[in-house]
Design a protein around this nucleic acid. Structure first.
Length: 216
DNA sequence: ACCCAGGTGGCCC
DNA sequence: GGGCCACATGGG
């Protein structure tokens, strides 16, 4: 019953077409989206992003100089709006002060240095840092999100909820290639949204014969 | 009236 | 180092 990682990847690739994935046009926009989407549906993130676009714009200097209360109003639909707004403003200010407002000042560094610097920012944990490295920096990092952990364990590929363990497992078995790792992550999110895998309580979906995903 | 969403940080032992 | 908890809006 249990499949391995290669089998899972090939089934996902056969089922879903995913191009370059994260819906954004700039590195800073990826960073903003990565913060806003924490524990939040992307639909709500889009609402907040749109309010920011209509206001100061998704621009480092603009965000850095937007009054906090104003930013909170735009972030509100994405939830946790007080902390998210404060963190976004802090990060924008940091980029202005330390890197002339250019995210490349971080992303252009050696991967591990860039990761450490991202992790030092408020509101940036492992998953957010790796999302930014992968989708804004084009670095071959696997993002071990809640969805990926669920899918890996329910398909019998890897039973773990430990971030580092999941990431190391995937990165050690697959080529360290940005397109492969971003494609896998993106397809897992699409799968999760389509199936009961998106809920923590669903049991047998990927393991049952009736599950669409299991039927090739 | 629940439960859930592409987590993080702070506090406790 | 692990186990809780607050953070908050919008949808099913």
């Amino acid at each position: 019953m249990a499949m391995d990682l290669y089998e899972l990847l090939s089934r996902l690739e056969a089922r879903y077409e995913v191009g370059s994935w994260w819906p954004s046009s700039s590195a800073f926009e990826v960073m903003v989206g990565a913060i806003l989407t924490q524990q939040t549906n992307w639909r709500n993130v889009e609402r907040a992003l749109q309010l920011i676009r209509e206001g100061p714009g998704l621009d480092v200097h603009a965000i850095a100089s937007t009054p906090l209360e104003e930013l909170e109003g735009m972030v509100r639909p994405a939830g946790f709006y007080r902390q998210k707004a404060a963190r976004l403003k802090w990060i924008a200010g940091y980029l202005v002060e330390m890197h002339q407002g250019d995210p490349e000042g971080i992303l252009g560094k050696d991967v591990e240095d860039a990761r450490k610097e991202l992790l030092s920012l408020p509101g940036v944990g492992k998953e957010t840092a790796d999302s930014i490295l992968l989708f804004a920096g084009g670095r071959p990092k696997f993002v071990a999100a809640a969805y990926t952990s669920r899918i890996l364990s329910r398909t019998g590929v890897l039973d773990s909820t430990d971030y580092d363990e999941i990431q190391e497992f995937v990165e050690s078995w697959l080529p360290r290639n940005t397109a492969v790792l971003s494609g896998l992550y993106a397809r897992m999110v699409v799968l999760a949204k389509e199936h009961c895998l998106s809920t923590p309580r669903c049991g047998g979906c990927p393991l049952s014969d009736g599950c669409a995903f299991n039927r090739r």
